[in-house]
Write a protein that binds this DNA or RNA. Structure first.
Lengths: 188, 188
DNA sequence: GACACAAGTAAACGGTCGTTTACATATGAA
DNA sequence: TTCATATGTAAACGACCGTTTACTTGTGTC
């Protein structure tokens, strides 16, 4: 049984598991699935490398758990349809401290076939399908596709390819176009 | 000196080099940079694995050469601005036999930092910067960014993520939106 | 305190990969 | 024909990675 102050314990499986999961989210987002090593992740978590296999069943299962924990299915669909464009761009463009965006994790899995399959499956079930039901009318599938295309393209443009002079920054004109683009999806 | 029918030669460095390059384009596009092995590429080319290092200087240099050979800088900017939307979507959506699109190669490099840097550099110099000079006015940079976002997002949506029931197919309604979207970039 | 088990660690295993090395052979000029 | 060299091959090298194994140590219970 746990003591009153269980924080004093030097061994805590749940805490270790969470530390691995959090470190995995960070390193998968930073380095991509292929370049993120078990030893990188467990070193940041401050634990032994073998615990990934013990607690998660392997690197691929850890990736799935890390991505799923980063996915918030209500990320878009809890927004009001008024000001949807401004609000969704604000969520995308402005980093929120402590919050790990799932998009870098997903893009980092692009070149590994197994990780990509997991990422695609999660994205479909947790984002794409909820979006389709959230949008109205018979064009809901096209609207969801438009949302995915602009979102994925924006992250690929901003984060994956240092095309602009300052990667990560968003030009005001581009930001305005993004806002009207997202707003048009819910208005039409 | 070459004989009259040099095709009878069993050794031809140029032909071998081209065979490696062509096989590399295919396999980098199919499996991504990380999962594409030197042995895969040289096996398809029908030559020995060591020739990659001898002729190209290594896997990374081979990737750069393969991507550069697949990039056609006039892919967009030789189109007339009338019917630009329909024409560019036709180029993207309808596969052309024998032609290897550079975008699968680029996405396949997403999770390898070195390959991604090469891909980003080539995309900027050969596509993004020409696009900026091709677009008119002071909003050329924003227009080029819009073009990249929609293009990258479309390929990520269609080819990288099997979100729709039939990956690779393009819904007519989505296609129409893509056409108006691209047309708007050149019209505004 | 003694014990059973959970929690954590260190080290080795087996495999893959890019690259290099040592060697064989076709080529074309002298 | 001879021979230097370009071309191609087979095999080994060295490193890295995910995983597993054997072992140690802390924890809670009796």
């Amino acid at each position: 049984m746990a003591t009153i102050n269980s924080d004093t314990r030097t061994r805590d499986a749940d805490r270790t598991r969470q530390a691995i999961l959090h470190a995995a989210q960070q390193i998968f987002a930073e380095k991509g699935f292929a370049e993120a090593g078990i030893r990188d992740i467990t070193a940041r978590a401050g634990v032994n490398q073998s615990l990934v296999s013990r607690y998660f069943g392997g690197k691929l299962k850890l990736f799935e758990a890390a991505l799923e924990a980063a996915l918030d299915p209500r990320l878009m669909t809890d927004l009001p349809k008024e000001d949807f464009g401004k609000r969704i761009v604000a969520r995308f463009a402005d980093e929120r401290a402590g919050r790990i965006s799932p998009l870098p994790i997903m893009f980092g899995a692009a070149s590994d076939s197994e990780a990509r399959a997991i990422a695609a499956h999660l994205l479909r079930d947790r984002v794409f399908e909820p979006l389709k039901t959230w949008f109205d009318g018979e064009t809901a599938a096209v609207k969801a596709a438009r949302f995915m295309i602009v979102s994925l393209g924006f992250f690929a443009y901003r984060d994956q390819l240092p095309l602009a002079e300052f990667a990560g920054a968003v030009d005001p004109g581009l930001r305005q176009w993004l806002e009207t683009e997202f707003q048009a999806i819910v208005d039409e």
